[in-house]
Computed example of a mutant assay.
Amino acid sequence: MPGHTLPPPCTFLNVGQAFAGTQNVSNMQKDEAWKVNVRLQGVDMQSGYLCGSMEALNVPAAETPVVTFWEGEIVDNRNYSFYTGQWDATKETDVKHWSKFASFLELREEVQKDGGKSIDLVNHPYIFMRWKEKFFVNVGTDCGLTIAGFYYVCFSRSDGSVNGFYYDPNSRYAAYNYDLLNVVLGNVLCSPYQKLELKATNEGRAGHSFATYQFQ
């Protein structure tokens, strides 16, 4: 049945792969972007699981770069569907956030009809995922940020580029203002979207790497 077999291997979805880019931290009061690094720590296509670290380099409220550990769900119609079913995300929330990606728009009707179960995701040029930050690695919860929400992610098989939007159910505007942008790694409770834009890098393949963290 379409979409129910394993997707073909992707060279950009391997343990150790690094991504670098920015997090748009814009709202009605300010317009800025933070530098963000991501590294994959684990990938299991069979179970639709991946995990990694996310590092924000220039967070104004933090004295050092803020690193979080996250776990991800790959939308494959085997293990996970387009409907989240947790983290206070309704089906309406899911459709609104997935629809921020141009590559999803052609799939929206099928998703709204049956959850997208009939879509052939195996051969689709993009992989849709959710990334949920689980804990802070190098700072405490008093760093001024929150990880209450999660990212809707669209990943390009061809070039490894990543686009993501963050949903925070605790944002007081999340229920009715979908056009504001959020803050990376948890927000300042003023806007429901964080726009994440990353590109795959060769960092780590030529002798360079992020700092090593031990996750417990």
Results as ranks from 00 to 15, higher is better:
E110S: 14
V111R: 11
V111Y: 09
Q112I: 13
K113F: 03
G115T: 04
G115R: 06
G115Q: 04
G115K: 06
G116P: 03
G116W: 02
K117W: 07
K117H: 10
K117E: 09
S118Y: 06
I119T: 15
I119D: 15
I119S: 15
D120G: 05
D120Q: 04
L121K: 04
L121E: 00
V122T: 14
V122F: 05
N123C: 04
H124N: 15
P125V: 07
P125F: 08
Y126D: 06
Y126I: 05
I127L: 12
I127S: 08
M129P: 14
R130F: 14
W131V: 02
W131P: 12
E133P: 15
F135K: 12
F136E: 08
N138F: 02
N138S: 05
N138G: 06
V139A: 11
V139R: 10
G140I: 11
G140Y: 11
T141K: 13
C143Q: 10
C143F: 11
G144C: 08
G144H: 08
L145S: 13
I147T: 11
I147E: 04
I147D: 04
I147S: 06
I147A: 07
I147Q: 05
F150V: 04
F150A: 02
F150R: 00
Y151T: 04
Y151K: 00
Y151S: 01
V153Y: 03
V153I: 15
F155M: 02
R157S: 01
S158A: 12
S158D: 12
G160N: 00
G160R: 00
N163T: 12
G164R: 00
G164V: 02
G164N: 02
Y166L: 14
Y166D: 07
Y167W: 10
Y167L: 08
D168I: 07
